[in-house]
């Protein structure tokens, strides 16, 4: 699950919450989807929808908060976590003690994680929180990286908003000759990512604490600039700044490839997606949904803009859906 040492009661509590979430996104979702088809307003007023919404909100709270929540577990484990040996080789990890995160990022505890990723142990809490959850399909990062890299020869890749490095390391495997940089605003994330990087990849991977919109990395350098679950965490103005920065960073002919969420067409799924924004503390998800990314990339001079539904695991795009899932899409564009 994670490196958080769990006492027996906390382990049982977390197992209960995980099982409840599985029921929520599986059997309860299927019941709701069947009841809501053809119902007025996509089933918004169905009792089952109210329970679905309540459970989404409060199972997330039960996972992170309270004495058996992950934030408290991490805090009780702090001394053990900070005593883990770590000696990053030169170039693997660059921190910026002067970085001041933007107000939009600190205004809300995203995902209901107390303190967010900027807290000292934020990355440990986040990793434990996403493990086994709706963004943790075993094949997600590998599929994305493999599809984006394909059989092209790639020398440099940049992963913006890299978190604790899942996508970054997937790209190192998909492009075994490439150097991959990972950038994240949260020091706890890039520290954990660097710590988790296998020694065999030292020299081929580098993590840097920086804002994605002002990375400070050299322009015209990268064959691929990528992100996973970054765009929907940013307000529209920041997304537009990110597009400009991406255009600066890419070499001519390079591609930008985001893996993110776009609203589904099915009215019931759309209702749940829009409700998810509020219930999961995703303050910019709906704003993100309204951006015409194709237009924004075209305005920035990109070509071949494509948004494609992404199956994070086999059968993920089945109709009717087997489980509630986030509407993953790849958004790809090419710099001329």
């Amino acid at each position: 699950m994670s490196d958080l040492p769990l006492d027996a009661e906390s382990a049982a509590h977390q197992r209960f919450v995980a099982a409840a979430r599985s029921y929520w996104r599986g059997p309860l979702f299927r019941t709701l989807h069947a009841q809501a088809r053809g119902a007025p307003d996509a089933g918004r007023d169905l009792v089952t929808h109210r329970y679905f919404a309540w459970l989404e909100r409060h199972l997330q709270r039960m996972k992170y908060s309270g004495p058996r929540g992950l934030a408290a577990i991490a805090q009780r484990s702090r001394d053990a976590l900070v005593a883990l040996p770590f000696a990053p080789p030169p170039g693997l990890l660059t921190l910026d003690p002067t970085l001041v995160p933007p107000a939009y990022y600190t205004a809300c505890d995203i995902h209901q994680q107390p303190g967010g990723l900027l807290a000292e142990l934020g990355a440990h809490v986040y990793r434990a929180g996403v493990t086994g959850g709706v963004v943790d399909a075993a094949t997600l990062h590998e599929r994305f990286a493999t599809r984006i890299v394909g059989d092209s020869r790639v020398e440099r890749i940049l992963d913006l908003g890299c978190g604790f490095g899942r996508g970054t390391l997937a790209f190192t495997r998909a492009a075994p000759a490439a150097h991959v940089d990972g950038v994240d605003i949260a020091a706890s994330c890039v520290i954990l990512a660097a710590r988790e990087t296998p020694a065999a990849l030292h020299g081929r991977v580098a993590f840097r604490q920086a804002e994605a919109t002002t990375s400070g990395l050299p322009g015209g350098t990268y064959d691929i600039v990528t992100s996973t679950m970054l765009l929907h965490e940013m307000p529209q103005a920041a997304v537009r700044a990110l597009i400009v920065e991406t255009a600066r960073l890419l070499r001519p002919g390079g591609i930008v490839a985001h893996l993110d969420f776009l609203p589904p067409a099915d009215p019931v799924l759309r209702l749940l997606f829009e409700g998810h924004a509020r219930r999961n503390n995703e303050p910019y998800l709906l704003e993100h949904s309204r951006i015409d990314l194709a237009r924004a990339y075209a305005d920035a001079g990109f070509t071949h803009v494509e948004a494609t539904p992404f199956d994070e695991e086999d059968g993920a795009l089945a109709t009717p859906p087997r489980v509630w899932r986030l509407p993953w899409h790849t958004i790809v564009a090419r710099k001329p």
Partner: peptide
Amino acid sequence: MIFPTAAALGGTRGAPALPA
């Protein structure tokens, strides 16, 4: 070297151990 916290490496300005 001991595994650093963000604060120990100077990487998180004023990062709270516990959220306020």
